[in-house]
């Protein structure tokens, strides 16, 4: 009887140990995956941040160049300056909103530039235009990567078994895509 109990007890202990090991293994694996995704989201945001700063630094150059030719467009310069100021501080969400505002005011600025053939032919202006267009695309692409990372993270921490190991982490916010950006705007004269 005693011997049988022993075998039963050993079996039970064994089973408990195996289950515990599996749980610990799962915990490590999911903990690491969650951290990897968290880091990926941070990294994605810092890529956006880099582009926002580059954009912030380029704007004065652009405005100076345009001012040289289009002296009477005060209103648009003010709008650009306002949007630019909003990009440097605040929460990521606020900064992205400021950046989106800048995108649309820059479009107006470039539309205005269409009326000045000399400005359009200026090499420096063309280069700035390409750089800003490039940055705009890069922000869009970096945001796409950010949102994919957030989606992966949210999927992981809201589904079983990831949700058991999430340690109370909440879902991360996506960066909203501005309405006008889905289709390329057409400027016609």
């Amino acid at each position: 009887m005693g011997r049988k109990m022993d075998i039963f007890t050993i079996g039970l202990i064994g089973a408990v140990v195996v289950v515990a090991l599996i749980l610990v293994g799962l915990y490590f694996s999911y903990y690491n995956r969650i951290r990897v995704y968290e880091n990926q989201i941070d990294e994605a945001w810092s890529q956006i941040d880099v582009q926002l700063k580059k954009r912030y630094d380029l704007i004065p150059n652009l405005v100076e160049t345009v001012k040289g030719y289009a002296t009477h467009e005060r209103e648009i310069f003010e709008k650009v300056a306002m949007a630019r100021a909003g990009m440097i501080s605040g929460t990521p969400q606020e900064r992205m909103e400021a950046s989106n505002m800048l995108t649309s005011t820059l479009r107006q600025l470039f539309a205005v530039a269409e009326a000045y053939p000399q400005l359009k032919a200026n090499e420096n202006f063309k280069l700035l235009q390409e750089q800003l267009q490039g940055i705009e695309d890069k922000i869009a692409y970096a945001r796409q990567y950010f949102n994919t990372s957030v989606l992966n993270f949210n999927n992981l921490i809201t589904t079983v078994p990831g949700v058991w190991f999430a340690g109370g982490r909440g879902k991360r916010e996506f960066i909203a895509i501005p309405e006008g950006e889905r289709q390329a705007p057409k400027v016609q004269f």
Binding site: Q47, K138, Y145
Partner: peptide, 19 residues
Amino acid sequence: GDEYIYLNNVSEGLSLAAG
């Protein structure tokens, strides 16, 4: 150089998208 800034911009954007 400036001549290829366009190509470099396009490529950098896509590498950002690919992470």
